[in-house]
Amino acid sequence: MKSPCKILIAAGSLSMVAALLHVAVIFGGPDWYRFFGAGEELAQMAEDGKLYPIIVTLFITSILIAWGLYALSGAGLILRLPFLRSCLVLIAAVYCIRGAYGPFIPLLVSTPYVENLGIAFWFWSSAICMSIGLLHLWGLKRNWSSLSQKN
């Protein structure tokens, strides 16, 4: 049996950490929404006790958990998930595209939401997404042949 791919373990772990941070934002409340760059509009809705910020944050959390599970599956740590290689390619692509275009969003889109998030949010969140995406790509490259095998 092949040893688990540490690169995909790292990628999956980072997606899980991101998911946990999103859950922490829900419990942290409006100030956490602001600190982590969700924007004043979501923070204000959270302050007003509206469910929308929680629903949006839980939706993002569920996607990040699924992505983490796919990376851990690709690493060989958990049961092989369906469409593993295709999903990992798509996950890597989404992370890298978000990482690549993110810093340009404030230059391309002028809305109060985009402007409220600020340049620092777009820079750091893009750098984080690009890093996680590149880890996925590296793990895919290293494990490409084993990811195509049907178990």
Rank of each mutant, 00 (worst) to 15 (best):
M1F: 06
K2C: 03
P4S: 05
C5L: 03
K6H: 00
K6I: 02
L8K: 02
A11H: 02
S13K: 00
L14T: 03
S15F: 07
M16L: 14
V17H: 07
A19M: 09
L20T: 05
L21H: 07
L21I: 11
A24I: 08
I26T: 11
G28R: 10
G28V: 14
G29A: 12
G29D: 10
D31G: 14
D31Y: 10
Y33T: 12
R34L: 14
F35A: 15
G37N: 04
A38W: 13
G39N: 12
G39M: 12
G39Y: 09
L42H: 13
A43H: 05
A43F: 08
A46Q: 15
E47Q: 13
E47C: 05
D48H: 11
G49F: 08
G49D: 10
P53C: 13
I54L: 11
I54T: 15
I55Y: 13
L58S: 06
I60A: 12
T61M: 13
T61F: 15
S62T: 12
G68L: 02
G68A: 00
L69N: 04
Y70F: 14
A71G: 08
A71Y: 04
S73W: 02
S73C: 03
S73N: 01
A75L: 01
L77W: 03
L77Y: 00
R80M: 03
R80Q: 09
L81I: 09
L81Y: 07
F83W: 06
L84W: 01
C87F: 14
V89K: 05
V89W: 06
L90D: 02
I91N: 00
A93F: 14
A93E: 11
A93M: 11
Y95Q: 00
C96Q: 01
C96K: 00
R98S: 05
R98A: 10
R98Q: 04
G99W: 05
G99R: 04
A100G: 13
G102I: 06
P106C: 12
L107W: 11
V109N: 10
S110C: 12
T111I: 12
T111A: 12
P112D: 13
P112N: 15
P112F: 15
V114D: 08
E115T: 12
N116G: 13
N116M: 05
G118T: 02
G118V: 06
I119E: 09
I119N: 07
A120N: 08
A120K: 07
W122C: 12
F123S: 04
W124I: 04
W124F: 15
S131Q: 01
I132D: 04
I132V: 14
G133L: 01
L135T: 02
L137R: 01
N143R: 00
W144P: 01
S145K: 11
S145Q: 10
S148N: 09
S148K: 13
N151L: 13
